[in-house]
């Protein structure tokens, strides 16, 4: 059984690794063979060399962006969950807020960070964190509110046949029903939090995060270094996504069908 699962896993992983290696190989070869200039395309080997030599700096920048993303992710999730409870309790609010939430999700609201920057001191991380919070908030709100309201009619009828109170229905039907919705929304919100944290750095403020390091390195024609920060940004986004997926699968082991 375990050996079977191991081969299954290898069957999924090996082709992906082979493809990745092949891609990097062709990239490296193309840069050498066509003698591409570094400002046009940098070879993977020199990006890796920049990544290792500047590792302490990159780690520092990743910590700044990662902290902003994490703080915003946690705050947005808490607010989103809290608001979804209010919305599911008061249906008329739901009809007011949900279209707004959907509309705000459709436009790139992180441009608001430019406005937020004016409200706080130039070195403050708060505007960026507010921005991440807002993005996460709407994703979590829409999904969890759906989970709280879209319960099986049979379940509600059954609970009413037991003369169950609204609070009991909330605790035993609505909340358990919303849990998978929460984890799904986190899977969407976690990478979005990281992206928002990067992009927020392009609108001024301290030059300390991955986003601002990428733009300043490009401005100084240090393309390999910029790419090294891009690599770190990818890794950070992957980290957030992987953790959210792991949390979801842990929850599923607790008995919830996908």
């Amino acid at each position: 059984m375990t050996i079977h699962r191991l081969t299954m896993l290898l069957g999924k992983v090996v082709p992906a690794i082979l493809f990745g290696a092949l891609f990097l190989g062709v990239w490296e070869w193309a840069v050498k063979f066509f003698e591409l200039k570094p400002y046009f395309l940098t070879a993977p080997s020199s990006i890796w060399q920049q990544f290792t030599t500047n590792f302490a700096l990159i780690r520092g920048a990743a910590t700044v962006s990662g902290t902003n993303a994490l703080v915003g992710l946690v705050a947005g999730t808490v607010l989103g969950v809290a608001m979804s409870f209010v919305l599911s309790r008061f249906g008329f609010l739901n009809q007011l807020i949900t279209p707004l939430a959907v509309a705000l999700n459709a436009i790139p609201i992180f441009v608001l960070v430019a406005v937020l920057n004016n409200m706080y001191s130039i070195t403050s991380e708060i505007p960026r964190r507010i921005m991440v919070t807002l993005v996460v908030y709407f994703i979590v709100l829409v999904n969890v509110a759906r989970g709280l309201t879209q319960v099986s009619p049979t379940h509600v009828e059954l609970m009413r046949s037991y003369a169950a109170s609204d609070v009991a229905i909330l605790r035993k039907v609505r909340i358990p029903n919303a849990v998978p919705f929460l984890f799904t929304s986190l899977k969407i919100a976690a990478p979005a939090a990281v992206i928002t944290a990067f992009v927020s750095e392009y609108f001024g403020g301290s030059q300390n995060g991955l986003g601002s390091r990428i733009s300043s390195n490009i401005a100084n024609s240090k393309n390999a270094a910029a790419w090294a920060y891009v690599l770190a940004a990818c890794l950070l986004g992957l980290l957030f996504y992987t953790v959210s997926v792991a949390m979801e699968s842990l929850n599923r082991k607790g008995g919830v069908k996908q």
Partner: peptide, 24 residues
């Protein structure tokens, strides 16, 4: 009461499903 859909709760074990009316 029983319905056309069994209406069991996926997040509860069979035993916990049976216990639900008793919990209430």
């Amino acid at each position: 009461m029983a319905f056309q859909q069994a209406g069991l709760f996926d997040w509860r074990t069979v035993r916990k499903n049976i216990e639900l009316p008793l919990e209430l």
